[in-house]
Design a protein around this nucleic acid. Structure first.
Lengths: 245, 245
DNA sequence: CGCGCAAAGTTGGAGTCACAGGTAGCGGCC
DNA sequence: GGCCGCTACCTGTGACTCCAACTTTGCGCG
């Protein structure tokens, strides 16, 4: 059937079937290019193309010199998106329960709000905000990128700062100061990582990222908004949705 | 710098820069393979490879005969993950506000709970469940796949059924019958679509999907669990997290 | 018997050529 | 002036080749 399909797809489909149905378990070696050319009677281009597609899909992983193997599907670590004003605490708990030691480094500076951020914070475009870029790590390996924006009037210091570990967010400080956060809005989408993100997160090829935009509201005022960039191959987001009926 | 980088990456980076900074606006034509070989003094392989990578990243789209163009970035339709026992209602509202007409077809049948589903429903493996597969559409185009599982004791009819439009879920029927749903748990992750999903959703190459697992709880009893498969290039998930502090 | 090194095998990058099928624009014909 | 067909161009796929870098394995030598 579908004899007009590209040749390489025949190879892709056969190997994929064997991987998903367990004939080829995680760690099992995949036939090499030359073996594929012989086994399926295809050219080397088709064999190479098939392997590339499967690697891109994340089903196999190739290492120079030692061949392709079925990728061990990493267990997706849960990331609890909870009702707290201190996202680091939740992250730390999740990482620790995964048996790793969480750390965090950050750098804050004054910046102008680009249109999208301005809209999310309900401030005018290019108005001054404090931008904090954080890298969250587990056992030293980068796991998540966090960029948060606070209007300057909520920020503490407008001078560039750097540090590691906890940094009190605007949301946290306002909550402690008697202005409680009333709601958190999040939107989640998938996208291809930018080169710098791919670099910082040490992402293998083909991995997409979850981009989570979170905005903290105190009444009708947006207090802080953050962008989280999360490797799609290592995490799953966990939401608890209370039913108020 | 980085002169040892693969040649095709030079092309990818140059074109990507032009696309993201707006030099090449959406719809603009991308140089063809032959033009790239001349302009960047690279071989045809490198040109081809560069175009493939950019297409895989979703930045450009190629059509046989008419060349590559910068992809119009589709606005990500919001999908509100709300505290309702009738997911179709939320979906319908979101699709309608996007100016499209929502429809739904479904098919229910008796099945044995595979291990993962059994665990989510807190029933023993391979115990009988009712499985409902739905395809949600907007203006006739498939937008989302939904598979839900209910333990037979909550299900209505064990005979295979088929239909379109509303189908009362176990969660809804229990709630109406006086057993209120107390919590909804969701986990979100990204993955490569399976061939059948790619087919049903008419996904272009390189698009990954959001996989949302939702479980309805009535007290400590799992009433129903659903898997939603959502094209990652067209939707973003929206969560409202009330703060109970 | 053990260790090191060389050879064989593998991936990833790169070049070249070829061909089928599709698009679009231009020119000629009615 | 309008319509039709042809041609040039483009993509997707495929074959064949070469090479650098790396891993593994097994053989030979000390």
């Amino acid at each position: 059937m579908a004899n007009s399909d590209p040749v390489y797809l025949r190879v892709v489909e056969d190997l994929r079937r064997q991987i998903v149905d367990g004939t080829l378990p995680p760690g099992a070696p995949i036939p090499s290019r030359h073996q594929i050319t012989r086994k399926y009677s295809v050219g080397e281009t088709a064999a190479r193309h098939a392997l590339r597609v499967l690697a891109q899909e994340g089903l196999i992983i190739g290492r120079v010199g030692s061949g392709h193997r079925v990728r061990e599907r990493p267990t997706l670590l849960p990331l609890h998106r909870t009702r707290t004003t201190e996202p680091l605490a939740a992250f730390a708990a999740d990482v620790q329960s995964g048996g790793r030691h969480p750390t965090c480094t950050w750098r804050s500076e004054l910046a102008d709000a680009p249109p999208e951020i301005a809209q999310r914070l309900r401030v005018s475009e290019w108005s001054p905000v404090i931008r904090v870029r954080s890298v969250l790590r587990g056992d030293g390996r980068p796991l998540q990128l966090l960029t948060s924006y606070e209007p300057v009037e909520f920020g503490q210091s407008q001078a560039p700062e750097e540090g590691s570990g906890e940094r009190r967010s605007a949301a946290f400080r306002l909550a402690a100061g008697g202005t409680p956060i009333t709601e958190i809005g999040e939107t989640v989408h998938v996208r291809v990582p930018q080169p710098t993100e791919s670099d910082l997160l040490e992402l293998p090829a083909g991995v997409q990222v979850l981009h989570v935009e979170r905005t903290y509201w105190a009444g009708d005022r947006a207090v802080e908004t953050t962008d989280a960039v999360i490797p799609g191959d290592r995490f799953r987001l966990v939401y608890g949705i209370p039913v108020s009926l």
